[in-house]
Amino acid sequence: MRMLVTRPEPDAQATRDRLAALDIDALAAPLMTRRNLPANLPSPQGFAALALTSTNALRALADRKAHEPFLEMSVFAVGHRTAHEARLLGFTDVTPAEGTLGSLVTTIALARLEGPVFYPAARHMSGDLAQALAPHGLMVVTVPVYEMVARPALPEDAASALVRGEIGAVLLYSRRSAEIFCTLAGAAVPPGQRRSLPMLCLAENVAAPLLENHFSRVLLADHPSEEAMMALALAFAREQSGS
Rank of each mutant, 00 (worst) to 15 (best):
R18N: 12
D93G: 05
A86F: 10
S216V: 07
F76I: 03
V140W: 14
A14H: 08
P209K: 05
L138I: 03
L232Q: 04
I108S: 01
T6R: 11
R34I: 10
A231W: 05
A207L: 14
S43K: 06
R16W: 04
A14D: 05
M125G: 05
I180K: 01
R7S: 02
M230S: 06
A188K: 05
L37D: 01
A150E: 09
R175M: 12
L41K: 01
P191N: 06
M125Q: 15
L61C: 09
S126P: 07
T107C: 14
R34L: 15
A49V: 00
E114P: 07
F215G: 13
P144H: 11
G90W: 11
G242Q: 04
R164H: 12
V117N: 05
M125K: 14
D157S: 15
T100K: 11
D222W: 05
A132F: 04
L101R: 06
L184P: 01
G192F: 10
V143I: 15
L31A: 06
L219W: 09
T55V: 12
A158T: 00
V78K: 11
L129I: 01
Y119M: 09
C201G: 07
Q45N: 11
V140F: 14
R2S: 05
L113I: 01
F215M: 13
T53K: 06
D23R: 13
V145T: 03
A28F: 03
A51P: 11
L219V: 06
G99V: 01
A130L: 09
E114L: 11
R81I: 11
V206N: 02
M73Y: 05
E114R: 13
R64F: 10
L61I: 03
F70R: 00
G79L: 09
L220D: 07
M125A: 15
Q45M: 10
M148R: 09
S177C: 09
A21N: 06
H124L: 12
E226S: 13
Q240N: 07
V170L: 12
N40L: 10
C182H: 05
E227D: 15
R217H: 14
Q13V: 09
F76Q: 03
L89N: 07
G115R: 14
L22A: 13
Y173A: 07
L19V: 00
D23T: 06
A130K: 12
I167S: 04
V149A: 11
R2T: 02
A228S: 15
P155K: 06
P144Q: 14
F118N: 00
G115V: 09
A161R: 06
C182V: 14
L232T: 01
Y173D: 01
A169I: 00
F236M: 06
L61H: 08
A235H: 13
E227Q: 15
V117L: 12
G127M: 07
A86I: 07
Q240P: 06
M139Q: 15
A12S: 13
N213Y: 10
V94R: 12
L133N: 03
R7A: 01
A66V: 03
R16S: 10
R238Q: 13
L232P: 05
